[in-house]
Design a protein around this nucleic acid. Structure first.
Length: 468
RNA sequence: UCCUCCUUAGCUCAGUUGGUUAGAGCAUCUGACUGUUAAUCAGAGGGUCGCUAGUUCAAGUCUAGCAGGGGGAGCCA
C-alpha cells in the first residue's frame, strides 16, 4: 500500500468535507485515550495542530494484538486509513484505520499524564511533558498567535522591528535588580590593587548585565526611523514570588517619534484591542476550551474590552475618586503616594468597570526619562490598567529637552558617563517622542484567562526554579 | 523579602477528642462488553503519611526547625 503524505489533524477537522470522504489519509500524533471492546477500538489522536483529537477506529481483528496493547495514552503513532463521516455525535469525521505504526511507545505504568485532568501545580513539575495536555496546547497556540499578531500589527502600520541587545553595559533605567554577565572565574576573579573585582579584565572590559528593558535603545532607533518596536526577552533578578512576575519574561516596547502622550494612549488602546480581536478571530477553539475548563467569563471579558473606550484620567483625578470612595483601603491614599494594587483594582473593577489609562503621575514616583509637565510636579506617564491583572502597559512621553533631562539625571544621581549616548539624541535633532512597554506574558495571561504567569510561558524562570 | 495556608497511593483528596491492619475516586494491571466519547461494569496490586528532632504508654494527628508548593502583599511588566 502506498501511503499518502501526512495530513495535519487541523486540516482534516477544519477543511475536509463530504468530497474527501473515502479518501486514504495518513496522520501522525500522540494518543490521548483508547476505548472500546474486543471487536473495536477507538483511539483519540492529537498532533497539537488543533485542540481537538481525530478519532481513529480500528477493527481489532485486523491488527496485531501486541500492537493494539501498546497503544496507550502518551504513545506516538502513525495511522493510515480512510476518512469517513463519523456516526458518533462528538466529531464530524473519523479515520477507519487500515494500518497503524507505533512510532514511540509510552509505558502506561510510568507516563505521568492521565486521561483525566491534572492540577496546574502538578503540571509545572512536569513542564517537559505539559505541552501534551489540552490546556498547554491551547495556551501555546494562543501565545504564538499573540506574538504573530504583534508583529503583524506593527508591520501593517509601518513600524520597524528593532533588535535591542540582551547584554547591556548600562543600568540607566533602574528598573530592578540585574543579572550579572561575566566570563570571569567567579571563584578567583582578577582584582584591582584595592582588592575589588577588576572588570576591565572581563570579556567586555566593563561590568555587563542582562537587559531589563530595550526602551533606551528603542528611543535611539525611533529618532531615526519614526516608528519602531522591540520584542524580546528581559530579565529581572528581583526576589519576586507572585503569580504575575517572572525573572525572564518577554516585553514589547514600541517607541514613536512625533507622538505625544495622547497619540501614545491612542496607539496603546488600538494595539490591545487589535490583539484581543485577533485572539477572538483566530483562536476560538482554544478560547472555548479555556472558557469551559478554567474561566467561564473569559470570552465575555475579552469581548467587553472591545466594546468600550478605555477610561482616561489623571493620577490627580484618580486620587480624588479614591479619597471620595469611602472604601476601607489597607494602604493610605494621598497625592504623591504611588497607587497600590488594591487602589488600581478598585478603579478598574468597581468604579469604572473597564480598562483605565492613568496619566500625569507625580515625577517622584516615575522614571527620569519622562516628559515633565508645566506644573513642575507631574510627568506625562501613562499606565494602562486591566481587570484581573492590573498594570498591563506602562509608558510615557519622553523628555526631549536636553537641559531638563540632564537636570533630572543629576537630581537622581545617575552617572552622566553611563548615559552620554542617550543624552546625545537630545543634543542632535531632538523631537517629541513617546513609547510604552507591554509585558507579553501578562497579555497572554489576560487572553487565556490563566491566573498564574508560570502557566503562560513554556519554561518559567522564577526564584529557585530553572529546572526545565 | 513579609503574611498566611498546604504537604497522606502515580494524580486529586478524606482521615473525628492522639488509640487495632491509614481510606475513597481516578490512573495502572486482570477480566467482561458488537460504535465508544475523559466509555462502562467486576476484581486485584499499589503507602518511609515531605524531612529531622521532640512530647507521649501510644503520633498521619501535638510542638519546633528545615525543605517544597499555593494564595495575598511589596517591587514591577
Amino acid at each position: 500500500m502506498e501511503k499518502p503524505k501526512r495530513t495535519v489533524i487541523r486540516k482534516l477537522l477544519k477543511e475536509s468535507g463530504r468530497e474527501q470522504f473515502g479518501q486514504l489519509v495518513h496522520v501522525k500524533g500522540w494518543v490521548r485515550t483508547k476505548r472500546g471492546n474486543k471487536n473495536i477500538a477507538f483511539i483519540a489522536v492529537n498532533d497539537g495542530t488543533i485542540i481537538h483529537n481525530i478519532q481513529v477506529v480500528a477493527e481489532v481483528r485486523n491488527f496485531d494484538e501486541n500492537l493494539l496493547k501498546q497503544i496507550n495514552t502518551g504513545a506516538c503513532i502513525a495511522v493510515t486509513g480512510t476518512l469517513v463521516e463519523s456516526p458518533g455525535q462528538e466529531q464530524p469525521v473519523e479515520i477507519q484505520a487500515v494500518e497503524i505504526e507505533m512510532l514511540g511507545f509510552a509505558d502506561p505504568e510510568t507516563f505521568p499524564l492521565q486521561k483525566k485532568g491534572h492540577s496546574l501545580e502538578f503540571l509545572r513539575e512536569i513542564a517537559h511533558l505539559r505541552p501534551r495536555t489540552n490546556t498547554f496546547g491551547a495556551i501555546l497556540r494562543i501565545r504564538h498567535a499573540m506574538a504573530f499578531a504583534i508583529h503583524k500589527f506593527f508591520n501593517d502600520i509601518g513600524f520597524y522591528y528593532i533588535h535591542s541587545p540582551i547584554i547591556t553595559g548600562s543600568d540607566a533605567e533602574g528598573a530592578g535588580a540585574m543579572f550579572h554577565v561575566t566570563a570571569m572565574d567567579i571563584d578567583n576573579p582578577p582584582r584591582t590593587t584595592e582588592g575589588k573585582v577588576d572588570y576591565t579584565q572581563d570579556f567586555f572590559g566593563k561590568e555587563t548585565n542582562l537587559t531589563v528593558s530595550g526602551q533606551l535603545e528603542a528611543e535611539l532607533a525611533a529618532l531615526a526611523l519614526s516608528g519602531v518596536y522591540t520584542f524580546g526577552p528581559t530579565f529581572r533578578a528581583e526576589n519576586s514570588n507572585t503569580p504575575r512576575h517572572l525573572a525572564e519574561f518577554w516585553m514589547i516596547e514600541p517607541e514613536m517619534a512625533f507622538y505625544d502622550i495622547r497619540d501614545n494612549m491612542d496607539l496603546a488602546e488600538e494595539f490591545l484591542k487589535y490583539l484581543i480581536r485577533y485572539a477572538l478571530d483566530h483562536c476560538m477553539d482554544d478560547l472555548e476550551f479555556l472558557n469551559k475548563m478554567y474561566d467561564n467569563e473569559l470570552i465575555d471579558r475579552l469581548k467587553q474590552i472591545l466594546d468600550n473606550p478605555f477610561e482616561r484620567l489623571s493620577y490627580t483625578k484618580a486620587i480624588e475618586i479614591l479619597m471620595a470612595s469611602g472604601q476601607d483601603f489597607e494602604f493610605p491614599v494621598d497625592w504623591g503616594l504611588d497607587l497600590q494594587s488594591e487602589h488600581e483594582r478598585y478603579l478598574v473593577e468597581k468604579h469604572f468597570g473597564k480598562p483605565v489609562i492613568l496619566t500625569d503621575y507625580p515625577k517622584e514616583i516615575k522614571a527620569f526619562y519622562m516628559k515633565q509637565n508645566e506644573d513642575g510636579k507631574t510627568v506625562r506617564a501613562m499606565d494602562v490598567l486591566f481587570p484581573k491583572i492590573g498594570e498591563i502597559i506602562g509608558g510615557s512621553q519622553r523628555e526631549e529637552v536636553y537641559d531638563r533631562l540632564l537636570q533630572r539625571i543629576h537630581e537622581l544621581g545617575i552617572p552622566e558617563k553611563d548615559v552620554w549616548w542617550y543624552l546625545e539624541t537630545r543634543k542632535y535633532g531632538t523631537t517629541v517622542h513617546s513609547g510604552f512597554g507591554l509585558g507579553f506574558e501578562r497579555l497572554v495571561l489576560f487572553v487565556t484567562g490563566m491566573s498564574n504567569i508560570r502557566d503562560v510561558i513554556p519554561f518559567p524562570r522564577t526564584p529557585q526554579n530553572a529546572e526545565f
